[in-house]
Design a protein around this nucleic acid. Structure first.
Length: 617
RNA sequence: GCUUCGGUAGCUCAGACCGGUCAGAGCGCUUGCCUUGUAAGCAAGAUGUCGAGGGUUCAAAUCCCUCUCGAAGCUCCA
């Protein structure tokens, strides 16, 4: 017996013509049923009453999952080439329908033995389409492989304290760990009632950084000059840190052949979340990480054990994931995003553990440099039961290093290609968690891609691969910075972004046009010390000019008038302290240098004179 | 992808239920005046396929359908 189950918005059908003598009676009106589970059903020669009994439990569990008890049984012979005799099929089919009704379902059916036309609209969720093959003995359900293994998966969740002790999430006292609690809630709770919009979306537009681009696909955004500037600084900073760690920067294509043997088997592990590009007779897909290019490169490389660990790095602009449209949110979840991706080949699990610790520190430093405190994110570790049991000391070492409790998810078996991963999770204003940095121990892909190194006996060996992103997607870092600022705002503090990332660091406002020339001298002086300074040359009231600067979140604002010119002392509006500070230009420069803390610098991304700037919304 | 809500000037929105002087306000923009002391100086002017397409109607921003974009929830997050 074969049943194609389709959870449908509606089905319409019309019986056209009897095809066999024993066909059921029917009229030829158009029938329409809405929000219904359609069972295209086909009975095969070996089916008997036991088959029907087996099918019932199978259908029942699907209906429970779908939370729907309205059914159309639609006889459909085309599912098999081994059909039962019509007489037997009608008999069993009636038994099938009666039993379904007896279980309290609302059962409709289309007539057996008729030629019919139909129109169907199937719902989009993962369980909406299932093929069930049922015999009198056993039952099989065919679904997407990844989904199947995910359903089997029942994770265990624990919290590990600094001292290495563990407790179940139910018992752990979260009183002093508000964000960890939010993470735990986010992971485990099914219902998250939120009515507000994500604050960063409004901010990214208001600050003229980033916007939606209706002319592209959803989740592909436009970056205005200031947004591009901040993103570019973040990209350069992360890249420089990863290179200092010892990674070799490479560049690989953004699209790959779906029929390449190594790629095909990797792709099949995941639901169809790729963008595809058809060109000539090739079916290409856009990469969703730098894995492909780097793995193919490593496949063709000759690597000695003496060179391990070998680290490759690429900043993907872009990685593409065709997330479902309802899952996209501002800068948090995109279809095209920029991802620093650093892989390391390690000799074995022991070596990979050593490397994981180095990269853990690297990632913390990178986030710190960007402007996140340790309080801004929480550590989650996800691990197979086997790896946990064998390496509990390693995890305790991380806990000690982290110096705060860790959220741990333990999988009963390996589901993905990795046995261990850690993530830094940022918790936003709506209580949502999103991963920033992460690292994984991959035990599968070296073999899949034929990546080897030569050991001290001259034998080829398969390495372990680590997958690290020390900052997470660059767009997501910007999201987190804006959400952090929004939180400040909500709690009554002045929102700001880190000094090193501000497109304008200092704005000079002349009191009137009489002070333009002398102000331009100050602008020159401050610019020469490497700061990004611009000049409010528009003919507005002072109040208005200050207001405009504040709306742009400019850290330091100087008004230049008679007093300043005479005394060489300036009243500086300091956004970070919220105070007016009187200081000389050199004092201001020193203060800025201190704030900059040796982070990278770059020229002003817009004209110095405000009047020369177009408005990007 | 599903359900719900939304899309009116560059921005924030009113108008929609009840179809007919409803194409509107504030900000921004342009021009002129003012020459400014730390979050909005004054005045005048320009600005719209009312998200797109179709339908109903004598008449549609307004009612109906389809599509599209965004948000929330579900789901998902390699």
């Amino acid at each position: 017996m074969r049943i194609l189950l389709l959870h449908s918005n509606y089905i319409e059908y019309r019986a056209i013509k009897k095809e066999i003598d024993i066909a059921e009676e029917s009229d030829t009106d158009l029938k329409r049923y809405e929000d219904i589970v359609v069972l295209f059903t086909c009975l095969e020669s070996q089916d008997d009453e036991n088959t029907i009994i087996n099918s019932l439990s199978e259908i029942k569990s699907s209906l429970d999952n779908l939370n729907c008890s309205r059914i159309v049984v639609y006889p459909y012979s085309h599912l098999s080439d081994n059909l039962a005799k019509a007489s037997k099929a009608v008999f069993l089919l009636n038994q099938f329908k009666d039993s379904l009704s007896a279980e309290g379902n609302d059962v409709q059916s289309s007539p057996f033995g008729w030629n019919k036309s139909f129109t169907i609209s199937v719902k989009g969720h993962p369980l909406a389409e299932q093929l069930k093959i049922i015999t009198s003995g056993s039952t099989e359900t065919y679904q997407n492989d990844a989904l199947k293994s995910e359903e089997r998966l029942e994770s265990k969740y624990i919290i590990m304290s600094v001292d290495g002790n563990t407790e179940s999430v139910e018992k752990f006292n979260f009183n002093n760990y508000k964000n960890l609690k939010a993470l735990q809630k986010y992971e485990l709770s099914k219902s998250r009632v939120v009515t507000s919009h994500p604050p960063h979306v409004e901010l990214m537009k208001k600050l003229s950084l980033v916007d939606y681009e209706p002319g592209s696909d959803s989740g592909n955004l436009r970056f205005y000059p200031k947004g591009r500037f901040i993103k570019s600084l973040l990209e350069r900073y992360v890249t420089s840190q990863v290179k200092k760690y010892g990674a070799l920067e490479v560049e690989t294509p953004i699209m790959y052949d779906s029929n390449h043997p190594s790629l095909a088997s990797y792709l099949n592990r995941f639901p169809a979340r790729q963008y595809t590009v058809n060109s000539d007779n090739k079916e290409l897909f856009l990469r969703f990480s730098a894995c492909f290019g780097q793995f193919l490169m490593l496949h063709d490389s000759i690597i000695s054990h003496k060179q391990l660990p070998v680290k490759l790095y690429e900043l993907t602009r872009y990685s593409f994931r065709r997330e479902k449209s309802g899952e996209l949110v501002g800068l948090r979840r995109l279809r095209a995003f920029t991802m620093p991706d650093c892989h390391a080949l390690c000799k074995d699990i022991e070596a990979s553990k050593t490397e994981i610790l180095k990269r853990f520190t690297l990632s913390r430093d990178v986030l710190q440099g960007i402007g996140f405190n340790q309080d801004d994110y929480e550590l989650a570790i996800r691990v197979t039961q086997d790896f946990y049991d064998e390496n509990v000391d390693f995890i305790k070492q991380i806990a000690k290093d982290w110096n705060r409790p860790i959220f741990i998810e333990i999988w009963p078996e390996k589901f993905f290609y990795f046995v261990f991963k850690w993530e830094f999770n940022f918790i936003d204003n709506l209580g949502k968690a999103s991963a920033l940095a992460t690292d994984q121990i991959d035990v599968e892909n070296a073999e899949r891609y034929g990546i080897t190194y030569v050991d001290d006996n001259g034998d080829k060996k398969t390495p372990i691969i680590l997958h690290n992103s020390p900052s997470g997607a660059i767009e997501r870092c910007l999201y987190a910075l804006l959400e952090k600022a929004a939180k400040d705002q909500r709690e009554g503090r002045t929102p700001s972004i880190p000094f090193w990332l501000c497109p304008t660091q200092i704005r000079i406002i002349p009191l009137s046009q009489d002070f333009h020339e002398v102000s331009l001298g100050y602008l020159e002086e401050l610019s020469n010390s490497g700061l990004r300074v611009d000049f409010e040359d528009r003919d507005l009231s002072v109040g208005k000019k200050v207001r405009e600067a504040e709306k742009e979140w400019i850290p330091f604002i100087l008004v230049v008038g008679k007093n300043e010119v005479e005394s060489k002392k300036f009243q500086v509006r300091d956004r970070y302290s919220g105070e007016m500070i009187v200081m000389s230009l050199s004092e201001l420069t020193d203060h800025c240098k201190q704030l900059l803390n040796d982070m990278i610098t770059e020229e002003l991304p817009l004209p110095r004179f405000i009047s020369d700037r177009p408005q990007f919304k």
